[in-house]
Simulated scan of single mutants.
Amino acid sequence: MHGPAPFPQPPPIPQRTPPLPTRKRRLPLWAGILIGVMVTLALLIGAGMYLIYHFGWKAFSEQATTAMNEQPIIQRCIGTIESASLDFVGTNNDPRENSFAFRIKGHSGSGVVTAVFTTVDADNEQIDEGELKMDDGRVFTLKAANDEEDEDTTNVETGCPGR
Rank of each mutant, 00 (worst) to 15 (best):
I78R: 02
E151K: 00
V116F: 01
G130L: 03
N69G: 04
I73F: 01
G32W: 09
S108L: 14
P12W: 03
I81L: 07
C160K: 00
R26C: 09
N146T: 14
E97M: 10
M1D: 14
M134W: 01
G137M: 02
L27K: 09
Q71S: 07
G3Q: 10
H107T: 15
N93W: 01
I127W: 00
S110R: 08
A5L: 14
E70M: 07
P21I: 08
G106V: 02
F60M: 07
V156K: 05
V156I: 13
Y53V: 10
D135G: 04
I74T: 05
I81C: 05
P72V: 11
V37T: 14
R103I: 11
K133T: 15
L44G: 13
G36W: 04
I81N: 03
L34A: 15
F102H: 06
G162Q: 13
I73C: 01
S108H: 10
S61V: 07
A101W: 00
G3A: 12
F55D: 13
I104E: 01
T141P: 02
T65D: 06
Q75D: 09
D121Q: 06
M1F: 13
D152W: 00
R103G: 08
L43S: 14
G111C: 09
A64G: 06
E129L: 08
K24T: 14
E70W: 00
I35N: 04
S108G: 05
T80H: 04
S61F: 00
S108Y: 07
R103K: 15
P72H: 07
T154D: 12
L86D: 11
F60E: 13
E149C: 02
E70P: 00
M68H: 01
V113L: 04
G106E: 01
T66E: 12
H54A: 12
H107Y: 05
N146Q: 13
P6W: 05
T91E: 09
V139P: 03
E125N: 08
I13Y: 05
G130P: 05
G109A: 04
Q126N: 09
V113H: 02
T40F: 08
I73W: 00
N93E: 14
N155D: 15
G111A: 10
L51A: 15
D121N: 15
A101G: 10
N155F: 02
D121H: 04
D135H: 03
G106W: 00
E131S: 14
W30Y: 13
P21L: 08
W57Q: 12
T91I: 11
G162K: 10
P19N: 06
L51P: 02
H2N: 15
A64D: 05
V113Q: 03
R26P: 00
A101F: 01
N69Q: 08
T154Y: 04
K133G: 03
D123R: 07
P10Q: 12
W57E: 13
Q9M: 07
Q9K: 10
A122I: 06
G3T: 09
E149L: 12
E97C: 02
K143Q: 11
P18V: 06
P10K: 11
D121F: 04
E125M: 11
L34H: 06
A115G: 08
